[in-house]
């Protein structure tokens, strides 16, 4: 969840016969802090870097890195990448649809399923589910999802128009920061 503080420890072991010196440690932003217990590592000794990342203010996927530079050019600079995705109050699976190699056929309906996940500790109201293209229809058009539960939406797709298109499934919610969400629906329809 946004606001979680991620902590990690990077451990270095000096497997050489000489002392290894860490010249600097740099983080990619002010939200992450890297502290080291010692920057001169004797042979066979270990050093630990404690990394702390504050995810407050971050939405979605982010990457932060910690660069550790060694005085010995043969070791150089080592980069540690931390990737995290903060849970949004509402998520959907899949993140998008992609249908290809479909033929135009107004008599066919392909049924797919979209899962809506409520990560909140309170109910989630969804309303006015609609799309911007008549080829894709969504049922139901409104629902309520209990706290920390999920529900399924049925997507009915009828390939009527040829071509490569993006159709959006619009979801309106009672979440202030996610009032309107668009789920992309890509279709590649041939003759």
């Amino acid at each position: 969840m946004e606001g979680t503080v991620i902590t990690d420890t990077i451990r270095f072991i000096n497997t050489t016969s000489k002392e290894v010196i860490i010249s600097y440690i740099r983080t990619s932003c002010g939200c992450s802090v890297a502290d080291i217990d010692k920057n001169r590592i004797a042979p066979l000794d270990t050093a630990e870097i404690r990394v702390t990342i504050d995810t407050r203010g971050f939405r979605g996927t982010h990457r932060k890195d910690v660069k550790v530079a060694f005085a010995d050019r043969n070791i150089g600079v080592k980069k540690f990448v931390y990737q995290f995705t903060t849970y949004r109050p509402m998520e959907h699976q899949p993140k998008y649809f992609y249908l290809k190699n479909i033929r135009v056929n107004p008599d066919t309906t392909i049924t797919l399923v979209l899962r809506i996940i409520n990560n909140q500790k309170k109910s989630l109201k969804i309303f006015n589910l609609h799309t911007n293209n008549k080829m894709v229809r969504v049922l139901p058009t409104e629902m309520e999802i209990k706290p920390e539960r999920s529900k399924l939406l049925t997507i009915n797709f009828t390939p009527v128009e040829k071509g490569l298109k993006i159709i959006y499934i619009w979801i309106e919610t009672d979440i202030k920061t996610m009032q309107k969400i668009a789920v992309p629906f890509y279709t590649q329809i041939g003759e």
Partner: peptide
Amino acid sequence: LDIRCGCFFAEGESRI
């Protein structure tokens, strides 16, 4: 702005 100062690029380089 949540950025590094960029003054010294040294270890423990402080935020603004």
